[in-house]
């Protein structure tokens, strides 16, 4: 199989501001691919285009060999694409476990009327979802906060909840926007181990981050600067690349 995700010549403008200028790259299946770039480079905008929050002015997104540029957010996530947000978006009033149950909503089959009358299949499905949520909660060490509204957790923990929720429906591609910001050094270490474990289980990850430490888990990195890919290669190659250094350090 070729790539799991292809970004093809994507350009985007907000009014007069050209944020992305013909960005193209592929994400290989089974890889952890990184996307780095200075503030305002257009990384989050690209994520919004990949996940369906924005339609690019020009260009296409191909996911699992199918052009998905015009498909909705939910349709993409049903196809196996999950993302997190730069500012963590947990369901604040829901407990951690309910957050995870909501995360795999698309796997459910029962409808509103069945739930209204409390039919047995609804209960069965709920029990299954809970069980699965509990498994993931254990894997992400969130046990002590299971019954606590996610909005009451500190930001770092909210990120873990968001990540755990994204993993609930076993996505084929997981896109993470700055997952390590607000995390302590030990938490970053845990995050890296978690990502490597998920990757070993076959999940492909696309990672946006400033954090060069976190980037060590990647096998391939693309550097985005002012809406253009200026370099691609291993993290080591990026560190050596004069263009990347210039973009980051301005020297």
């Amino acid at each position: 199989m070729g790539s799991i995700l292809e970004v093809r010549d994507v350009s985007h403008r907000f009014g007069g501001l050209q944020v992305l200028k013909g960005v193209s790259f592929d994400v290989a299946p089974g890889s952890i691919t990184g996307l780095i770039g200075p503030n305002g480079a257009g990384k989050s905008t690209l994520f919004n285009i990949i996940s369906g929050f924005l339609t690019p002015s020009v260009g296409d997104i191909v996911f699992l060999g199918q052009t998905t540029t015009d498909r909705g957010i939910a349709a993409r996530s049903r196809a196996g694409l999950q993302r997190t947000f730069q500012t963590p978006q947990v369901f604040r009033d829901l407990t951690v476990r309910e957050n995870l149950v909501a995360g795999c909503h698309m796997r459910g089959r029962t409808g509103v009327l069945e739930a209204f009358f409390g039919l047995p299949n609804v209960r069965r499905e709920m029990a299954d979802a809970r069980r699965r949520a509990d498994e993931i909660i254990e894997r992400f060490d969130l046990g002590p906060w299971r019954e606590i509204p996610a909005g009451e957790l500190p930001a770092g923990r909210q990120r873990m909840v968001e990540l755990a929720r994204a993993v609930m429906c076993e996505p084929k591609l997981l896109c993470l926007d700055e997952p390590s910001s607000g995390l302590s050094t030990t938490e970053v270490q845990t995050l890296m181990e978690t990502l490597e474990r998920l990757n070993a289980d076959g999940m492909t990850v696309l990672l946006v981050s400033h954090d060069m430490k976190l980037m060590e888990v990647t096998s391939m990195v693309h550097a985005l600067c002012f809406g253009e890919i200026i370099a691609s290669g291993s993290l080591h190659a990026m560190r050596e690349s004069p263009r990347v250094r210039e973009a980051y350090l301005g020297t």
Binding site: F85, V90, G103, H105, A129
Partner: peptide, 19 residues
Amino acid sequence: RTGIALRAMRDAPAAAAVA
């Protein structure tokens, strides 16, 4: 499950769409 989904989309519509 439906009720949880409803509350989820009330709290964070963007994340609910992703879910």
